[in-house]
């Protein structure tokens, strides 16, 4: 249940990425992707829920024909996963990616654990190629080193929300990326 008394903007201690900067960078990434995948069968796979705004903006800036698909995996600590203790695919691809050039679209990569799992899973579906595009890269916390082909911004090791990223399922609808005030989660 969404709390109605939360002032989303007031909870942000620092705006890390303004909306204009995000949109400009997304357009740059889309132009690069359009050039790199020209003449190929591109499928964008978005990882719910955090990458949804990024995916929506990115795909509209890409100028070549493409297909999209959505996946969702359980996150560590999520209530839906406590029983199994193992990561699960909550929503699988709707269509086959066999022979397709797949670009996995992520909101943020930090430890790389989720991405590592997803890439292993998708590799098993025999795509022609499999690359990664992330809006935010937080390399300071990387455990699994994975090649990331398209990076929007490399950010410092701070807890960020907005533009799809959440804390307690809130703040996803902010149009910028900001650092959450520590008192928000410490309280």
């Amino acid at each position: 249940m969404v709390r109605a008394d939360v002032d989303l903007v007031a909870d942000i201690g620092e705006v890390l990425l303004e909306e204009d900067a995000i949109q400009a960078r997304v357009a740059e990434l889309a132009a690069q992707i359009s050039a790199d995948y020209s003449g190929r069968q591109l499928t964008l796979v978005s990882v719910l829920k955090g990458s949804l705004p990024f995916m929506a903006d990115l795909m509209r800036h890409i100028t070549i024909p493409l297909r999209i698909d959505l996946m969702e995996v359980s996150s560590y600590g999520g209530t839906a996963t406590e029983s199994s203790g193992l990561v699960r695919i909550l929503k699988d691809l709707s269509s086959s990616i066999d022979g397709s050039d797949v670009l996995l679209v992520e909101d943020i990569i930090d430890t790389g654990l989720t991405l590592n799992y997803l890439l292993r899973y998708l590799r098993g579906k025999n795509p022609a190629s499999l690359r990664v595009c992330t809006l935010l890269d937080k390399p300071a916390r990387r455990l699994v080193e994975i090649p990331v082909d398209y990076i929007g911004f490399t950010i410092p090791d701070q807890f960020v929300v907005g533009y799809g990223l959440d804390y307690g399922e809130l703040y996803r609808n902010l149009r910028f990326v900001g650092v959450l005030r520590p008192e928000v989660y410490s309280s």
């Binding site: 890390l16 990425l17 960078r25 990434l29 690069q32 890439l119 292993r120 590799r123 098993g124 190629s129 499999l130 690359r131 990664v132 890269d137 994975i146 090649p147 990331v148 082909d149 398209y150 990076i151 929007g152 911004f153 490399t154 950010i155 410092p156």
Partner: peptide, 15 residues
Amino acid sequence: STLDDTGAARAAPVV
């Protein structure tokens, strides 16, 4: 299964 090598990363702004 094993991951593919997927090419070089692109330049990204550092925040």
